[in-house]
Nucleic acid binder design. Sequence first.
DNA 1: AGCGTCCGTCACCCATTTGTCACCCAAGGG
DNA 2: CCCTTGGGTGACAAATGGGTGACGGACGCT
Lengths: 229, 229
Amino acid sequence: MSHVLIVDDERDLAELIDFNLRGAGFSTRLAFTGEAALAAAREQSPDVVLLDLMLPDLSGIEVCRHLRANSQLRDVLIVMLTAKSEEADRIRGFEVGADDYVVKPFSVRELVLRLKAILRRSATPKESVPPLALGPLRLDVTAHRFYVEGQETSLTALEFRLMEHLMARLGRVQSREQLLEEVWGLSSSLETRTIDTHVMRLRDKLGNARALLETVRGVGYRIVDPTAG
Amino acid sequence: MSHVLIVDDERDLAELIDFNLRGAGFSTRLAFTGEAALAAAREQSPDVVLLDLMLPDLSGIEVCRHLRANSQLRDVLIVMLTAKSEEADRIRGFEVGADDYVVKPFSVRELVLRLKAILRRSATPKESVPPLALGPLRLDVTAHRFYVEGQETSLTALEFRLMEHLMARLGRVQSREQLLEEVWGLSSSLETRTIDTHVMRLRDKLGNARALLETVRGVGYRIVDPTAG
DNA sequence: AGCGTCCGTCACCCATTTGTCACCCAAGGG
DNA sequence: CCCTTGGGTGACAAATGGGTGACGGACGCT
């Protein structure tokens, strides 16, 4: 199956994860510091790096950045492990390109599911992820670019994720709770009103196409299909 | 909604949780000891067990193990409540298969979010629900759209829920009390006459199809099957 | 250190939604 | 035919939900 590099300085936890991932059929390797993680990754390219945010030497974010900066390792999948209080870091993490987040304390069951899901997603070669095109909107996940009426429009990391999430669920209403959970991350303790603000900012950037991002009062938001009659 | 078994020997806390979960629409049951929890679970399979780690008789971990060992209850979702300091127990908790953790002290809001999240995840992945179609009426739950004779008709969130409820129970009369409980949610202390108003508003929006929403004098309302009879 | 960007939170405002009431009329029983 | 009861309906006030602009904190960059 797939090879996972587990990076966490809490040995008990790392070993617990190790034990369970092996049970689930993954091959694994452990690292307890950021430096060790980078060395291990260089030596034996893993498919996924499971990366604790709090490490004694480098922070998880720095490790992440180093991995992304290495041409050999650029495409490795990175799953961040964050403590609940580190919500703010999560956003940063997405910016440096983590592929998923799991919030501590988490269940092993969930962790394994997430790993499998992310591997499945990346199983299709990345080049072939077709850009999401929709009327005047085009979102290129691979290149991380977004176009409105052919014009490239810069979105922040969070806006991009929100837009991607909504476009991938064309026509389906997404509740604020769903969005918080799936775009912001599990157990996010944000105000749901925060979403409104980001939707507004997105709409601003959509310009003429702003009508495509609809509010469903009392329910949530959705992207409408401009071709639907 | 879902049934939650709350297990905690601190009665004040258990009751606080109880109050809030009921407010959020869950049905609940309390147990103050491990034995009582197991008995309650056997008697009335809950969807989720909210399990304090520190109990006077059995530890939460033992309760967890018993639940997992019982073929009837094996698949119940288990959310552990742990004090921050109980790191070691957390690890052991993973081993016996808790599905999520909430660390005390926690905010009630977060707890509710976590519960909803975990229930949603374990629910059958209802990416999209097939629309309810019925003669000239079509109600698309996923997109949250409603059509009369092919024409989209806007319903408020409440009207939508009411319509969904009635259409899903085609032909069956729903009493006002039933509707209040199931559409408005428990704990609603409304006048039953309020329903009349909403039924009227719905009928207005149904236009030609208004006859499909029948009054059963002295009993309640129902949607009739236009193809029957 | 200074600046700019991004993000979360607030407070204010408005439109819509929702609950309630009062006044009827219709149905059904005698 | 009359009376009772339940439901339809329009009007109204209150509550809610969402848009929006502003603010401050955190962070990266120079």
